[in-house]
Design a binder for these strands. Sequence first.
DNA 1: GCCAACGTTGGC
DNA 2: GCCAACGTTGGC
Length: 148
Amino acid sequence: MLKDKVFTFIEIYCMKYWLVKSEPETYAWYDLVEKREASWDGIRNFQARNFMKEMAVGDRVLFYHSGKERAVVGIAAVSKASYAEQGYENEWVVVDLKAGKGLKKPVTLAMIKQNDKLHQILLVKQSRLSVMPLPMEAFQEILNMSTT
DNA sequence: GCCAACGTTGGC
DNA sequence: GCCAACGTTGGC
């Protein structure tokens, strides 16, 4: 089908991949699933903000629980590109995320650190960053780890 | 509870 | 502009 081919083209050449972090006590994957869609707000870090500005509708986003859990638990998609957070004009932005599927098995930080293909990702190299890009291969690798 | 890695603030 | 002091995040 032509439609499938177009989608594949978009996926390979246009779609970007990200990972966002949240402490489950503050905002959990379950909260996004329940709401279906929510704005990702409260980001007060320039690097994280700049990454959010690069997000486009349809980009895939891994949802990571920081704190005690330390695991990727779900997949979301960007449903609205960045716009100013209320009350912050041009200083801080938010994006809207839509919940996708939960992972069958959470992929823990420990598992990620043990995987040679994932040594370079920012989750490992820059532990405090809360919004980060992922190479497509890394995104795929993490999903593969969830099913095996 | 501790520590590393950042980020921010304020004095100079 | 530099740097010390302090605060925060997040892993261990």
